[in-house]
Amino acid sequence: MPVPAPTGPLVTRDSLCADLRETGVRPGEILLAHTSLSSLGWVCGGAVAVVRGILDALGPDGTLVVPTQTGDLSDPAHWGNPPVPREWWPAVRASMPSYDPLVTPSRGVGVVPETVRTWPGALRSAHPQTSFAALGPRAAEILAGHAPDCRLGEHSPLARLEGLHARVLLLGAGYDTCTSFHLAEYRIPSPLVEVGRPGPDGWETVTEVSISSERFDELGHDFERDRPVVRGRAGGADVRLFPVGDAVAYAERWLPLHRPREEEIQHPPL
């Protein structure tokens, strides 16, 4: 069968940079980017061109941050996509390799974050399940001190990003990917859960705040209605820009009203 012709629009490194600048990305700022490569169109150069285009828009003084989560480093008892047989659980726990920020690949966040993770000069935070990677002059400051018992709370890069007045870039991605909302879960009454994972000395369990992206799409819809969100287009993708701090503050008010505790997932996938 003949291979179908690619569908557009055509996106290049230069066109992406121009679209981001036109939308409002400022040279020298800090961006926490959530991306969907497929939403952009036909990207000449793929994920590498996307990373270069964002870095071009930020300039040499800007810093790009992306989530590089590793939800597979978790208790197989809670896996659902796909699940594994119960009789495998002990062997999986015993043999699962521990997190290594240099070699452990990200999972479930797309090809652009994985490209950033492996970029020359990239740094990565230390949390074994909810790490972030960054490129730029503020990378070390943002990623330092990511506590092993604080996935996305006060001792994570999210709080640093809030304090540095960073903005979120949704590049073809929806509000369901917006990790900034999770920081609000640490500031409202939230249940605690036991989280299992491989550690340097074998299987370990830590007590953590329960986090879930349930209803984040609804939260984002209301946030965009009530708060100033910069909107634009890049290729075929919708672009949204807004401060991390605004997203967190809005979620602190919204979540207790719209997502009662009984709706929360006690062992959510990362």
Rank of each mutant, 00 (worst) to 15 (best):
W119P: 03
T179H: 13
V209T: 15
D176T: 11
F132E: 00
E218K: 15
T115Y: 03
Y186V: 01
L143M: 10
H155M: 12
E194G: 09
R187V: 07
T177A: 13
D149N: 13
G121Q: 08
S210D: 07
F181P: 03
G172H: 03
H155A: 15
A134I: 02
G174P: 02
T207H: 12
R138N: 07
A122K: 01
F132D: 01
A159N: 15
G121C: 09
G163E: 14
I188P: 02
S212M: 13
H127E: 03
W203Y: 06
F216A: 09
R167H: 13
T205I: 15
P113D: 01
S212A: 12
P189C: 14
L183H: 01
P191M: 11
F181D: 00
S131W: 04
T177F: 12
D176Q: 09
V209Q: 11
V206I: 15
E194K: 10
L135P: 05
V112G: 00
G199N: 04
A139I: 09
V193D: 06
A122I: 13
P198G: 03
S210Q: 13
S156E: 07
F132G: 04
R215G: 10
S212E: 12
C178V: 15
C178S: 14
A159Q: 15
E185T: 04
P198R: 02
G196N: 05
L161W: 08
H146M: 06
L192H: 10
S131R: 03
G163P: 05
I142G: 02
Q129H: 07
G199A: 02
E204Q: 13
G136Y: 11
R187E: 11
E141M: 05
G196H: 01
R215Y: 15
R187C: 08
F216P: 08
G163Q: 14
P137L: 06
V206K: 02
P120Q: 08
L143W: 07
V209N: 10
L192G: 08
P113Q: 05
G196C: 08
R151I: 01
L219Q: 11
T130C: 14
Q129C: 08
S210E: 13
L123Y: 03
W119H: 14
V168D: 00
H155T: 12
P148I: 07
A159C: 12
E154G: 15
A134D: 06
S125K: 02
G153F: 14
P189A: 11
H155P: 02
W203T: 06
V112N: 00
L171C: 06
F181G: 04
L219G: 12
L170F: 05
V206M: 10
L158F: 12
V112A: 01
H146S: 08
V209H: 12
L171V: 07
L161I: 11
S212H: 14
V111Y: 04
A147T: 10
S190A: 13
H127C: 01
I211K: 03
E185N: 02
E114T: 00
T205E: 15
R160L: 00
G174N: 03
A140C: 05
P113M: 04
Y186L: 01
L192Y: 05
E162C: 09
T179K: 03
A173F: 07
S213G: 14
R167S: 14
G172C: 05
R215E: 14
R187T: 05
R138D: 11
S131N: 02
Q129R: 08
L123Q: 09
L161V: 11
P120E: 06
P128S: 00
D149F: 07
A122C: 14
S180I: 04
P191F: 12
L219F: 05
L171R: 04
A126W: 01
G196V: 13
